[in-house]
Design a protein around this nucleic acid. Structure first.
Lengths: 255, 255
DNA sequence: CGTCGTGTTGAGTCGTCTCAAATTTTGTGG
DNA sequence: CCACAAAATTTGAGACGACTCAACACGACG
């Protein structure tokens, strides 16, 4: 098959890992509450641990683990996986730079999902209960937390649309648009990023076969919608993806 | 095709609409905070309106409407629908008795979805901002609200599993197990209930064709997994549905 | 009793899954 | 930096399931 004149030229070198500044981090508001801008340094350090490194493939959280910290992705990327008793598993979420991990465990203080680094990554940790104890002093923590929760709820409402998508092309397009939006929301490029997850993870998440995901990526590339080299991905035609995703009239979604 | 001896006999009369008591309602904790058990009656009445009736097919909320109340379903059932600019729409959620409507709009004070009654229903309303203003007095509102938010987050994490389901049988089984669990969680029968939504709504929500949903229902009935008469549904073999849903080993899900 | 909305049934097509093998990329040790 | 091994991805062929379209049956309601 003839190769189209590639409309989305790719630089030959690998994309450097992306990192968010504190201002773009979902934990920022809470860090402020915790007093990071406060002179009382030693109190801060007891609440927030910065830049803990997690190596590619290592687990940040085990399923069943007790909840006591909220994590924020500083750099890199993570996936959340449910593990069934019979050995099967399913990817249920991805966490991009600036996003919060662990919110769903506040409910009953237990993490339901295993969370694994998809590349060498770093996180900040916030001691949840210590923050609650300081509530009287700083008073705005719960409110910030609630904002974060609702934002997360909103994001997960992407998923019904994913579900409604009948074709593999539609699903992948919805997925890519969502990722782009999320990168963009954190002040990173939504057009050029590294999709650290394996094809298998994407397939699992989208409920498609691994081979199908690959074929659709190729089709998208031939249409000039995007260009990928390994896992580095460059969006060439965001509008085009939105159209395939069937999201053009979705005012509620476009980030 | 031979009709199996029906293992799930159905009573001939229509199921009466179900209703939750206050104790089973998602608003209960908040109503308590609001002082429903408090002697100061007139203050209560300014915060909570009880038993507002919504007729079958009427809208409780319009997309784009300003947020100022949280609703709780007292009896009946509702669906949430996204509406695209180009006229398409998609069912994104259902609300069963005792469940809260409107939580996702706290984020930016706008409702994204149209919410419509699937049968003659009734709701209670809680004035959100009046509650916030009373925070100092009763102090526990935000915390209850946060619990509700996290619970909702948890419930919506059913959806990745739905997404992972490849076959129509799996999807419908996951859906039915979810509905059963939610009824059960509110103290209603999870084995015998009225699925007020049209086949079309279920199909839309599950990303299946209307005809496929019908065919799968029939197959389930022939296998003795359930029995339906119109929209009244009786679960005959919950374990069997769980197996088809692929949820047997899903400790995190079975409610 | 007829109409309309809703649900059922059947036939044929197309897309995605499965399985198997080739190929590329990634990771590791020299 | 190169070579090798392991993992991940690509490619191809065939089968099966879900979709579409169209016609029919049922139920509620006037």
């Amino acid at each position: 098959m003839d190769q189209l004149a590639n409309p989305v030229p790719h630089s030959r070198k690998r994309m450097p890992p992306k990192e968010v500044g504190c201002c773009q981090c979902g934990l920022y508001a809470m860090c402020q509450v915790a007093g990071l801008e406060n002179p009382d340094k030693h109190k801060i350090d007891s609440l927030v641990q910065r830049r803990k490194l997690i190596e590619n493939g290592d687990d940040l959280i085990q399923a069943g683990e007790e909840f006591n910290k909220i994590f924020a992705v500083k750099s890199g990327m993570f996936k959340a996986v449910t593990e069934f008793d019979d050995g099967r598993s399913q990817v249920v979420d991805f966490f991009l730079p600036g996003e919060l991990i662990g919110l769903d465990a506040i409910h009953d203080q237990v993490h339901l999902y295993k969370v694994t680094a998809l590349e060498d990554s770093s996180v900040c940790e916030l001691d949840f209960y210590a923050m609650l104890d300081m509530e009287n002093e700083y008073g705005r923590f719960q409110q910030k937390l609630m904002d974060a929760l609702v934002a997360k709820t909103r994001q997960s409402q992407f998923q019904p649309l994913l579900m409604g998508a009948q074709s593999a092309e539609q699903r992948l397009a919805v997925f890519l648009v969502g990722i782009s939006s999320r990168f963009h929301a954190r002040g990173l490029s939504g057009e050029e990023y590294r999709l650290s997850m394996r094809r298998m993870d994407i397939a699992d998440y989208l409920g498609l076969a691994l081979e199908t995901v690959g074929r659709v990526f190729k089709r998208f590339e031939q249409k000039g919608l995007l260009s990928c080299r390994g896992r580095d991905t460059q969006i060439g035609d965001f509008q085009g993806l939105m159209e395939i995703a069937g999201l053009m009239g979705a005012t509620s979604i476009g980030q």
